[in-house]
Design a protein around this nucleic acid. Structure first.
Lengths: 142, 142
DNA sequence: ATAATGTATTAAGAGTACTAATACGCTTTA
DNA sequence: TAAAGCGTATTAGTACTCTTAATACATTAT
């Protein structure tokens, strides 16, 4: 378990957001499992050569999103996916973001079928990794 | 043809971006057709009670995205969709945005099938409107 | 106790978003 | 040709965000 997070300083995306995105996606893909401990804020900050407050900001966002839980003195841990609840407001935000992508894709000249297929492909790549992980975990615990 | 653009001042999304999004989606849905003239910057600014420069900023973004063309002295017009070219760089950006949405959806507890179906639904709603428009245009020109 | 971890506060610099005021150049139209 | 309409460009200022920095504090683990 080393350092899977890569930040690019030249990006227009804020550093704390890059961290949020990468950890979010890692959790969705099952690359980090429930209960697992994330790197300590100071350590991660040192490895990425950024300020600890920036990491704290990222972890704070992730906690607010319900993905992790921080315990003072102990560390930061990934939540159990089963605890997550589907909120209507979040669904709406997701729908709006989808609309934005759909408009962008169509305006780029991509037809409807290709666009849907593309999205399906991205979903599958998440699920495949997630299922791989589950198998590995089963084998490990055996 | 009145004013379909609605901006909310309290939104965290910048005003010029709200304009960009709404016009982009309107173009994708075919609610604005190729060759059609957009509202003059000053007029739109007056109607929305915002600064003309903000509208100029929005139109500038749309032009850079290849969706519209501005002609000094004449006005701003929607481009012909057939002229749009699919760029690899844009596809990658689209893929990244999809990944972000997929992670978000899965982490919210939505399963893969539902997520893909949801996206498909958004795509269809665009296409349906687009086709409706095409029929109306055929009828009008008859 | 000591080390490790997260929390909180305050301050400052850099960059971005938006508004504002204004002037200029091109095109259409009377 | 002159006026009106439209987009372009520049400069300035205010407000907000991102990031770093320097600390100090509270809780937990060893």
């Amino acid at each position: 378990m080393a350092l899977w997070i890569q930040i690019s300083a030249g990006s227009n995306e804020p550093i704390y957001m890059q961290i949020v995105s990468q950890i979010s996606e890692a959790i969705a893909k099952g690359e980090i499992s429930a209960g697992q401990k994330l790197p300590a804020m100071r350590k991660l900050a040192a490895e990425l050569v950024i300020n600890p407050n920036t990491v704290a900001r990222a972890y704070s966002e992730l906690e607010q999103a319900g993905l992790i839980t921080t315990k003072t003195g102990s560390g930061t841990f990934v939540n159990d996916p089963k605890l997550r609840t589907i909120d209507a407001a979040n669904i709406n935000i997701l729908a709006e973001r989808m609309d934005s992508i759909v408009a962008r894709g169509i305006n780029l000249g991509i037809n409807a079928s290709d666009l849907a297929a593309m999205f399906r492909g991205r979903v599958d790549s998440f699920i495949n990794k997630s299922q791989k992980r589950e198998k590995e975990n089963e084998r490990d615990s055996t």
